[in-house]
Amino acid sequence: MRRRRPPVRRTTALALSALLLPALAACGSNDGDKNGDAKDAKKDGATTAQSTDQLVIYSGRNEELISPIIEKLEKATGTEVEVRYGDSAELAAQILEEGERTKAGLFFSQDAGALGALSQAGLLADLPQKSLEKVDKAFRGSEGDWVGVSGRSRVIAYNPEQADKAPDSVHDLVEPEWKGKVGYAPTNASFQAFVTGMRVLEGDEATLKWLKGLKANGAKQYAKNGAILDAVDSGEVSLGLINHYYWYEKAAEVGADKLKAKIHFLPGGDPGALINAAGVGVLKDGGQDAAAVKAVDYLLSDEAQTYFAEQTKEYPLASGVTSAVKDLPPLDSLDAPEIDLGKLDSLQQTLEMLKEAGLV
């Protein structure tokens, strides 16, 4: 029977970033419990899985979404699964704290940056080539130790009653014509991953200038992507920076004909067209390699890939599986920037930059 582990204790984003990067520098050192999470994990009464028919998953994807597919995974692989849910960056910090004492056999991250952090720290095991080859190189770790499961594209949502069309670049959003008309979510992980991507693609100086320009142009802050989409739809703002699937989820909920808001997939490899991936990596010291690899292969199976496409409207990443979501452009038609997604691991620098720009 599948057991749920208690969620990892939450910290503020800035406190986490202060933890994550020093831990990275220490390459997953286990010299004590700096924030108490590893100690708390030992007290939760759960037994560490150490056999091939048991698996502990640390999941940065939320329980409501993941629980049904975990049940299917158990049946398909004959594996007993325990899951600890939490924020992806916080769970990565937890694994770094635990080091070789980790209870996790598999890390399921909401974004590639947290997987990149663990890869850089040398905590992920090499995946079998046959597993890696199911996914395009753009959506797997350059070291062959993590693989993407589902993808999401950044887009600009726009209200056609206020804007005939959306700009073709996020750089246009700091122009006077869009003063006070743009919505964004600086405390949201997806926006922060996008900013990290811009830093990787264009450098810190250019990114900081853009962020300061966004603030100076009166862009409006929201807590979440969904709130931005609602603001665009109501005309509160003309444009909004979101992930593509929020529009498709809303369209499925209320009907596309009921939505005033539209979305624009940016051309030309613009940083605003970043495609990020939720993915998985096997923990080198988890002692559950066989069960974890079975889980990886199941998550790349037609059944699991179709589940993510239908439930979240994300892009399936395994070859041979396509989305049936109405009017969703094919993944290979998108003009995303070329970037090593594993390099989206420098969350601390991004948070510091957002603070310097006055956005958080």
Rank of each mutant, 00 (worst) to 15 (best):
L266W: 06
G342N: 01
S142I: 15
Q54C: 12
S131W: 13
V282W: 07
K258A: 15
L124A: 10
A26S: 10
G45A: 04
G86D: 00
D53A: 14
V83R: 02
G203M: 12
G99S: 07
W210N: 06
Q311H: 11
K326N: 07
K179Y: 03
T47E: 14
L208W: 01
S67M: 13
R101I: 07
G255K: 00
A76K: 12
G269W: 08
A256S: 15
K215E: 10
S29T: 13
D257K: 13
L239C: 07
E74Y: 10
E82G: 11
L115D: 10
D302E: 14
L344D: 08
R101V: 06
L127D: 12
A104V: 11
A216Q: 14
D285Q: 13
E236H: 06
S109T: 08
E161F: 13
R140F: 01
S346I: 00
L317F: 04
T79K: 09
G287R: 12
D270E: 03
A324T: 12
K284I: 11
D257Q: 15
S346H: 09
R199E: 14
R4A: 06
E205L: 03
S234G: 03
W247T: 03
S131G: 12
E202H: 06
G218S: 14
Y222D: 08
S238H: 10
T47C: 09
K130W: 14
H264R: 14
A112S: 13
K212P: 07
K220Q: 13
P7S: 03
D270N: 09
D126K: 15
A189H: 12
A15D: 15
E303D: 05
P7L: 09
L354C: 14
A318F: 09
K130I: 09
M1S: 15
E74P: 09
E253T: 06
D302S: 04
G281Y: 03
Q349W: 06
D230Y: 11
G141K: 01
I263L: 15
D145N: 15
L347D: 14
L334F: 04
L106V: 05
G105I: 01
A92M: 02
A189C: 09
W178A: 03
V135I: 08
A185E: 07
I95Q: 07
A26N: 00
A13H: 05
V149T: 09
Q305W: 06
N276K: 03
L14E: 13
L124K: 07
E352T: 14
A26T: 12
P271C: 07
A138C: 12
P6V: 11
Q94I: 01
A193I: 05
N159M: 10
S323L: 02
A121P: 00
V174Q: 05
A89E: 08
W146P: 10
A25M: 15
R3M: 08
G148V: 01
E253D: 11
